[in-house]
Design a protein around this nucleic acid. Sequence first.
DNA 1: CTTAATGCAAACCGTTTGCATAGAT
DNA 2: ATCTATGCAAACGGTTTGCATTAAG
Lengths: 137, 137
Amino acid sequence: MSNTDLRKAGLKVTVPRLKILELLENSAEKHVSAEDIYKALMGSGDEVGLATVYRVLTQFEAAGLVNRHNFEGGQSVFELADDKHHDHIVCVKCNKVEEFVDDVIEQRQDAIAEKMGFEITDHALNIFGICKDCRKA
Amino acid sequence: MSNTDLRKAGLKVTVPRLKILELLENSAEKHVSAEDIYKALMGSGDEVGLATVYRVLTQFEAAGLVNRHNFEGGQSVFELADDKHHDHIVCVKCNKVEEFVDDVIEQRQDAIAEKMGFEITDHALNIFGICKDCRKA
DNA sequence: CTTAATGCAAACCGTTTGCATAGAT
DNA sequence: ATCTATGCAAACGGTTTGCATTAAG
């Protein structure tokens, strides 16, 4: 139950936070924008302001509950923090996002960073392309 | 000479465009933001408006003279289009950008895209870390 | 009761755009 | 002379923030 996750993060358990967590857990598309969340919550009795959505997502990110991605210029996309790291492949037509992991690539990255004298803090590999569905159309 | 590059791109040869091209060619740091360019041009007799810098960079990008990157949320970064593709490793402290290429990673990416049914259009691998210099401090 | 969270509207920041003027061909 | 490029200031879109109000502990 997410209730404890929130407490652990030092955050009070409030309706907006619970709703957003729940939405992140249950949404069909794992990768959602702040506005997606805002709209999804719109009709739901207790509405949540867009500013609050952003604040909550930022706090969740700080708490490690959520990861934020900036795939292209536009808006940020959030996903529930996974146990394990993964990279993304994004359809440039329909914006669908899928995930993948490749151990060889991971290792090469570490090797490159080390060779170049960097202490690696993070990395993002994004492949852009046209997905199977969109290629048919 | 860049004069012909501009003509080839169907762009009139103007002072702002030449200055920006020149700056991209000669700047110590290959990866610069629009504002970097704007500021660098500030004191230079013929000043160039920030809007023009953006317009010119956008045109250069369309013409394939320049590549634009969105490393993190902030502002875009531009570099003269290289003959050959490369990826980036960015220092999160000083924002220095270095380049690298790794054939193994390139191949794996193609394989992954194919396996997932994507027709790859582009990809961006960005490693973030702390560079040698910044680690000393 | 105390302290943190929310909603709203206003501020922000990088980027884009409309429009009248200046410049290239 | 024509048609594109520039500069300025205003608009934009996503995100953040100040402040008074409301709710959690």
